[in-house]
Simulated assay, not measured.
Amino acid sequence: MPPGLRRCCRPPTRGFRWRHLRTRSLCAALRHMERLNICSRKTLRHRHTPLISEESPVENAIGIIGVGSMGGALLGRWRAANIHVVAYDVTQAGRERASAHGVAVAANPAELAAQVDAVAVMVRTDAETLDAVLGDDGALAGLADGGLLLLHSTIAPSTTTQIVAAAQSRRIDVVDAPVVGVPAVVEAGRAVAIVGGSQQAFDRAAPLLKPCFRDAIHMGPTGAGNAAKIIKNLCTAAEALVLAEALRIGESWGIDYLDALAMMTTVDQYHFIDHWSTAFDANGYGSAPLRVPNLYDKDVPLARNIAHAAGISVPITEALADSAQQIVAATE
């Protein structure tokens, strides 16, 4: 077996683990191993590094900017791990939430950053993130050279790269680590962090991610965590939007939407994400979907046709039918 590869994608351990997604070199190694009948590609989709050891260095203190429901949940996890926390929030409710945890509240992000080794930002928008970090009283104004920034918000990769550019001359490590999970899941320590940044920054951030997340997946360089979270949310939203349009088609043919939903939860549902190797190439050659018999060339066009027959507008189905036609044409 080539050096650095494991036979199983999941180590036989529980708790926090950190991952690196496969690279082209890993794909090449897998193809070589399959030719030698050493192992199956399905068992090596991810390469794992070992669990963080108890001896891993942890920053002495962390500041959290944004103490809403999500930021408050992160704050609680760090407090439970006996990590010193300083907080800041623009709202009175956020400041009171921090105080309820027994945490000192700073007057602004710069004052907060001056008291800690690492700063986590959990605000809602790109503009709020830039203001919290790069504003006149932003975190960079107070954070010491060589500090650490963790950007937990779902923001554009370009926002993260802008912050990295501003921090680089001062040797401040930056990771984008958006969170997958609602506040209750974060509070229970079951959320996942999807991380972008250098290997050095990821390794340094890992001990601070460990108390908060059951898993941290290193997707690649700066901005990769942002992009990964965005495409994950795109798929989540797309499922709801497609379902809504499908229910409208059903209603146009006299099917009550509640009956349609009950039917869909009763029949044997097939989710491509659970069986992705049947829909996408598992060899690493490209992300174009494979042709699935009947689904793209017959069933999706049928959905568009019965919508047309009922006289309703279905823009998502129209786009899906066009895409399906392109897939069929490309695979004939």
Rank of each mutant, 00 (worst) to 15 (best):
T222G: 08
A206N: 07
V242N: 06
H218R: 11
V242Q: 07
L234A: 13
T222H: 14
A227L: 13
E251S: 15
M219T: 05
Q200H: 11
L208M: 12
L247V: 06
I217T: 11
I249K: 06
G197E: 01
L243Q: 03
L247P: 01
I230A: 14
A205T: 08
A237F: 12
I230C: 03
K232H: 14
A237C: 10
L234E: 01
P211I: 12
D203I: 04
G197Q: 02
N233F: 09
Q199L: 07
Q199C: 04
C212P: 02
I230D: 01
F213G: 04
M219H: 04
R214S: 15
G220M: 08
I230V: 15
Q200L: 09
N233I: 08
R204K: 11
L247G: 06
A216R: 02
R214A: 15
L247S: 07
K210F: 00
A244D: 11
I249W: 03
K229I: 06
D203N: 14
G197W: 00
K210T: 11
P211M: 12
P221H: 11
Q200T: 14
N226G: 06
Q199K: 07
K232T: 11
S198V: 03
A216L: 09
C212A: 15
L209F: 13
Q199F: 00
E251A: 15
S198W: 00
R248Q: 14
